[in-house]
Design a protein around this nucleic acid. Structure first.
Lengths: 109, 109
DNA sequence: AAATATTATCGCAATATTACGATAACACAA
DNA sequence: TTGTGTTATCGTAATATTGCGATAATATTT
């Protein structure tokens, strides 16, 4: 993210930005949508599903895992990914909270 | 954003990612929060408010303007920024829609 | 017109992201 | 053990982001 001065912003602002960043790439949006659709978790079907190389998909999964939105579990020789409800709800709450605070009109513009 | 293969994803996925990206930096979150708090729009109070140089603030404003979330209007010798309700609501709808589709538990993990 | 105030843009350096092939690491099967 | 399938990691190239000083552009004031 370049040379971001994270220390000058609040924890909440940084956390919200981190969640937003997790969704800031169409491939990761696609991954999340897939995981939401197939309530049940899946594995490397994502590699077939997405128009990206296996290494790239793995990298996107890593980012989502790092921010906590998804988690993986070993399932035989493959790995089963799914949404982490706790983190997912926290992200939802932070975003919904931000968006809901907009009431009506501006005084100018 | 690196060498993103945007053309291989849906319009909706790219649009959602673009909105998320707008919020993917604490400075831009801070700008949005400020604009939401001061229902009325403001100008370069943001430069005083944020721990960043004027040029940097201007750059973040430009990004928010490009995605459409905010808009600016000339107000004398300064510029008045505010949230664009139409775009803001569209972003809200897309994000809320994504987050609300998560129902209950996973079958594994 | 000249000075001042406000915002945008340019140019640059440092760092991060995206993508992929190659390869490692691991579990399971033959 | 030797393969086979699955996922992670490494290394690298291309591009994007972040930040800031310097400067341009514009409007207002003197």
């Amino acid at each position: 993210m370049g040379v971001t001065k994270t220390e000058n912003f609040t924890k909440s602002q940084n956390q919200l930005a981190a969640y937003a960043k997790a969704l800031a790439h169409p491939a990761r949006v696609a991954i999340i949508e897939y995981l939401l659709k197939h309530q049940t978790c899946i594995c490397g079907d994502l590699v077939d599903e997405l128009p990206l190389a296996q290494a790239t998909v793995s990298q996107h999964l890593k980012e989502l895992k790092q921010v906590g939105i998804i988690k993986g579990e070993i399932e035989g020789s493959s790995i089963c990914y799914c949404i982490d409800n706790k983190v997912w709800n926290e992200a939802k709450d932070m975003l919904v909270n931000l968006f809901m605070s907009k009431v009506t009109k501006n005084t100018c513009c």
